[in-house]
């Protein structure tokens, strides 16, 4: 084992686990267990006649094992492919805005119709841009909405209502 001697307070002890690998491994373990446990709710069957749960349990178990291996890798110095890569902080606010924009679209496009939904969705998304002012975001949103309506409704003739039931359209 190559412990870093004389380097910082960790000297002589095990180096701290490499966090990205720890997170990735944990994600695989959680998802693997979720699919395996969920799969156990269905008929498992036998090797001859596999039920609906057979394959998810087998794959979920495999993913859990692979996740454990990734966690082990985290304690052994980490994945060499990304160990020395600089990772900027996660843009939580921007990610939240984009997810909100997409969710808003999904929830309201049937009720509000394409026009109003797009306006709000693109406005929320535009707010995620670096150094953007609300007015500028609104202008961007209006421009993109107009473009989308021309492309999808006028040119491609998608059968999406411009205004939905909620607006009496």
């Amino acid at each position: 084992m190559s412990t870093h001697t004389g380097e910082g307070p960790d000297a002589g002890t095990r180096p701290a686990p490499f966090r990205p690998d720890l997170f990735a491994g944990a994600a695989f373990i959680v998802l693997g267990l979720a699919f395996a446990i969920g799969g156990a709710q269905y008929d498992v069957g036998s090797a001859l006649r596999m039920g609906s749960g057979y394959v998810p349990i087998a794959l979920g178990g495999t993913l859990t094992v692979l996740g454990l291996l990734v966690v082990v890798m985290a304690f052994r110095g980490g994945d060499p492919a990304i160990r020395d890569v600089v990772r900027p902080p996660v843009p939580w606010r921007r990610a939240g805005l984009l997810v909100a924009a997409i969710l808003f679209f999904g929830f309201t496009v049937g009720g509000l119709g394409l026009g109003p939904t797009l306006l709000v969705t693109t406005f929320l998304a535009a707010l995620a841009a670096p150094e953007v002012k609300p007015l500028r975001a609104a202008l961007t949103a209006a421009g993109i909405t107009a473009l989308c309506l021309v492309v999808f409704v006028a040119l491609l003739q998608l059968k999406l209502p411009l205004f939905g039931d909620w607006l009496g359209g």
């Binding site: 984009l98 924009a101 997409i102 679209f105 999904g106 496009v109 394409l114 797009l118 969705t121 693109t122 998304a125 535009a126 995620a128 841009a129 961007t140 949103a141 993109i144 909405t145 473009l147 989308c148 999808f152 998608l158 999406l160």
Partner: peptide, 11 residues
């Protein structure tokens, strides 16, 4: 560009 991508992808 990226708000437009979000809109196109959703539609």
């Amino acid at each position: 560009l990226f708000p437009a991508i979000i809109a196109f992808a959703s539609i």
